Simulated assay, not measured.
Amino acid sequence: MRFSTLFTALAVVATGVTATEFSSSSITSALSLTAANCYGAPIPPWETGHYPGWYYGQGTPPSGVLCLVNQLLCELLELLPLCLQCPKPPPTPPPHTPPPSPEYTQPFYNQTCATQDNNYLTYGLVDTVADCQAMCDTVATCTFVNTYHDVNGKDGSTQLTCALFSKCLTAASNDNCGEQSQPDGSVDYITNSDGYCKKTPTA
Rank of each mutant, 00 (worst) to 15 (best):
F3W: 15
F3L: 14
S4C: 09
T5A: 13
A9H: 02
T18E: 05
T20C: 08
F22A: 12
S24Y: 12
S24Q: 11
A35I: 01
A36L: 11
C38N: 14
C38S: 15
Y39D: 02
W46I: 08
E47A: 13
T48P: 00
Y51N: 10
Y56W: 09
Y56M: 02
Q58K: 08
T60S: 15
T60P: 05
P61V: 05
P62Y: 04
S63D: 09
G64C: 03
C67W: 01
L68K: 06
V69N: 11
L77T: 00
E78P: 00
T92D: 04
P98C: 02
P100V: 10
N110F: 14
T112S: 12
N119R: 13
Y123G: 00
Y123E: 01
G124Y: 07
D131W: 05
M135P: 03
D137L: 09
V139M: 08
A140T: 12
H149V: 11
D150V: 03
D155Y: 15
S157N: 04
Q159N: 11
Q159G: 00
T161N: 14
A163M: 01
A163Y: 02
L164Y: 11
F165H: 12
S166P: 01
A171Y: 02
D175R: 02
N176L: 07
Q180N: 09
Y196L: 09
P201S: 10
A203C: 12
